[in-house]
Design a binder for these strands. Structure first.
Lengths: 119, 119, 119, 119
DNA sequence: GTGGTCTAGACCACT
DNA sequence: GTGGTCTAGACCACG
């Protein structure tokens, strides 16, 4: 069973932070396509949160089609590689945007930001 | 007088967050080289912190040679453009590193991270 | 616990005088390399100053790398003998300079000042 | 008329500090052997002290035979070169002692203190 | 009015 | 108990 380190700040709802961190765990391959996730209770213990909170986070991921449920068997990462790629690329775009925004904040243009990266 | 919006989280000391935000304000040109900063007390009001806390943050910036003090006159941004550039480029390097780290976390390599940026 | 006698004049900030006297205590070996300093509060009592003032002085010494902090344990003299020697020799140079300056003031040249010492 | 800059701290009697500073002015040659000193009133103005205080300081110097008074004419530096030399050498000894004491305080021996001086 | 210093007193995390 | 942070409030020198 793949163990994850969860970390939270007090600024935003815990379940949203769980969603983010689980999403990262999945697209990064920590939980590969088609693999079975630890049980809700196990995940809740890892994260030191209430199982209900973890359940809420997983429901979010499911409605996103990143995971699916097999009735009596547990939750699995989607086998749809395209879906995974799409989410991953969405996250990547966000990070790119964050990078550009932060650079803009200190007065560095988009073009310069790209040059900086290559050093 | 240039007004800044300060924002804090409860995770790290306020004075350190002040240092960071003032540093950004300076390298971004919000307070240009050689210009006079608002008084310690004014800045403290803007940030809604105790003047002593603001004083501590400014002392940090001064020991970093980003600002200097004219005893009874106020505090000024350094006129040393090279110093400013050095700090700015230091901040930029940090952001670049953060970007690569975040991308690595979702399983995207350095090379791919650079490509992503150009889209 | 090594007790120090602190003395102040009213000309200069107390915390700077604390820095000087603590620095001397350390390089002289009153607080040996690697040894634990009395707690901030104890030192404050010894010096009859507010703990915050002592804290400020110790922060100065720490940024000078003469001491380091173990978070919940206390503050310790650096183990870096070279650092200690460097500081000590810096202080010595200052004293030499003071001596020459004072001798010059009463009209005694550098060369004569050296001779005087050997008597 | 030779002008002197007087400086005082609040720790010791002003007149004693005047004595010290005048003594230095004399042995250093600022007021050469046999030369006439500015009047008590002039000296008092220079030092921004009450003429009585200056008078007391000069009396001290006179009892030390560093200066002498010509009734209606003013005060003069002694013409006795040997006296001047003796005072000067007394001051020098004091400075040497101070130097050794200060070096001892930071843990440097007499022998090492002499070596330090030659660098 | 400016920055700087100092005290008193409180609260925090960590172990 | 340790160091660290923060606030409130006061006083100082300087010009």
């Amino acid at each position: 069973m793949q163990v994850i380190q969860f970390k939270f700040d007090n600024e935003r709802p815990i379940y949203l932070q769980l969603v983010e961190q689980l999403r990262i765990a999945i697209v990064s391959g920590a939980y590969p396509a088609g693999s079975r996730l630890p049980s809700v209770r196990e995940l809740a213990v890892m994260a030191k949160v209430n199982p209900n909170t973890m359940q809420k986070a997983l429901a979010e991921l499911e409605s996103d089609q990143l995971i699916f449920t097999e009735r009596t068997n547990g939750k699995y990462v989607t086998k749809d590689q395209r879906r995974l790629e799409k989410i991953k690329s969405g996250l990547a775009k966000e990070l790119v945007q964050n990078y550009f925004d932060a650079m803009a904040k200190i007065g560095i243009t988009r073009a310069e930001s790209i040059k900086y990266l290559q050093k």
